[in-house]
Simulated assay, not measured.
Amino acid sequence: MINRMILNQTSYFGAGAVASIVDEIKKRGFSKALVVTDKDLIKFHVADKVTSLLDKAGLAYEIFSDVKANPSVNVVKQGVAAFKAAGADYLIAIGGGSPTDTSKAIGIIINNPEFADVVSLEGCAATSRPCVPIIAIPTTAGTAAEVTINYVITDEEKKRKFVCVDPHDIPVIAVIDPEMMSSMPKGLTAATGMDALTHAIEGYITKAAWELTDMMHLKAIEIISRSLRGAVNNTPEGRDGMALGQYIAGMGFSNVGLGIVHSMAHSLGGFYNTPHGIANAVLLPYVMEYNAPATGEKYREIARAMGVANVDAMSTEEARKAAVDAVRKLSVDVGIPQKMRELPSVKEEDLPALAEMSFADVCTGGNPRDTSVADILEIYRNAF
């Protein structure tokens, strides 16, 4: 069997790492950036930490700040137009997964204009050219979009999210600077952190997992489990740990895929605009229970990585329960809702439609246990 690994070209880690972009821009001969971000990051001066560096160095840029959570087809089209109007030759994405996903779509379409409708990028589109260069600077510790070959766009007309998987979209530079994440409120820190844990756990048990990605995912589970509570309380150690842990998870899952936690979360996001991290966090323990019979001894290692004591003395079933219980406890500790009915707008009568949509999601194929619409519907009902 042949396994493939794709990572971004260059990454910088640590407090103050964002200053590294100036030398990288000059070395690479970039002329003008389109800075892709959202209005809140402008309003609260988070984006200023980057643009002030550009100003000081005399580097040209224009700002596109119309990105919203769960970026839509129309937002991508607006971004493509803004890139062309600016005369830019590279992108700087500042924010969570939404600005980076938007940048990936913009960058792909600029160099592959036959995909200008955006929706044709769904799945593994046959793009022929790498996207324009992207410098990704995350302000949340969760999506790892800066190191993945995936991005997610919302088709608002059809009330659905679609996943794009393309080696041509990966940023050339990633800057993982915990100081860029320090202004995240508690709720967002918790949600994005549980998103990262979901990446690590789903990546570890997915059908395509192998030794190299197992190593990454187990280390990510360990780091996230010991760091997330501190990050929610805004401790430097917690922020540093989450910044690194989410990136390591991204290195792994980008190369082996995910499972039905993400399929089901994508449906919630497309249908109700539910924040992705919250959707993953609520669903994760229920899907773990469903998947347990298809995971061998892997839940024992998840429990161990999460700090559960005496796992070697447990039976397989006990170890599996311990892993799920550890995930639930972390989720409760950081304030995540435990049932879908606690989420805004979610209606029980919509569950059959959500199940159909989830089964069709690209992530479903990677789930360790073969599933069906009926099985997914039952998980939704248990989670509701």
Rank of each mutant, 00 (worst) to 15 (best):
A220K: 12
I63K: 04
M357K: 02
K39C: 07
E348D: 07
I278A: 01
H168Y: 15
Q9S: 13
V73K: 08
S315V: 07
I106D: 01
D195T: 13
K161A: 08
M314W: 00
L7K: 01
G97R: 03
I223S: 04
S254D: 09
G245T: 11
E222S: 14
G58W: 11
K77E: 12
A86C: 08
N111I: 03
G257N: 04
L197G: 12
R160N: 03
G203H: 12
P178K: 02
G95D: 09
G203W: 05
D350S: 10
E179K: 04
N273A: 12
Y299H: 05
P138L: 13
F162S: 08
N74R: 08
M215Q: 15
R328D: 06
D350N: 01
A209L: 04
V80I: 04
S31F: 10
V22N: 03
I42G: 02
A326K: 01
E157R: 05
P368R: 15
A249N: 02
L330S: 00
F271P: 00
L34T: 13
T127E: 13
K77I: 05
H266K: 03
A265C: 01
T235Y: 01
I278N: 02
N150T: 10
K347N: 13
G307T: 01
K298F: 08
R160C: 04
V175H: 08
P185L: 10
A292F: 15
V346Q: 00
G365H: 06
P352E: 08
L218A: 07
T371G: 10
V73P: 10
P138W: 07
S11N: 14
D55N: 14
M194D: 14
R381C: 01
A15K: 06
M306Y: 07
G107N: 10
A82L: 03
A82V: 11
S315G: 10
D48Y: 05
Y90Q: 04
M180L: 09
Y90F: 15
A383D: 12
N233D: 14
E157K: 14
H266W: 07
A279T: 12
R239T: 07
H262E: 00
M251E: 09
A136T: 11
A69M: 13
Y151T: 09
N291Q: 12
T139H: 00
P275R: 06
T206H: 07
G97D: 02
T51S: 05
A60M: 09
R300N: 03
K56E: 13
Y380E: 05
S227D: 01
S331W: 13
T274L: 00
T213N: 12
T102C: 15
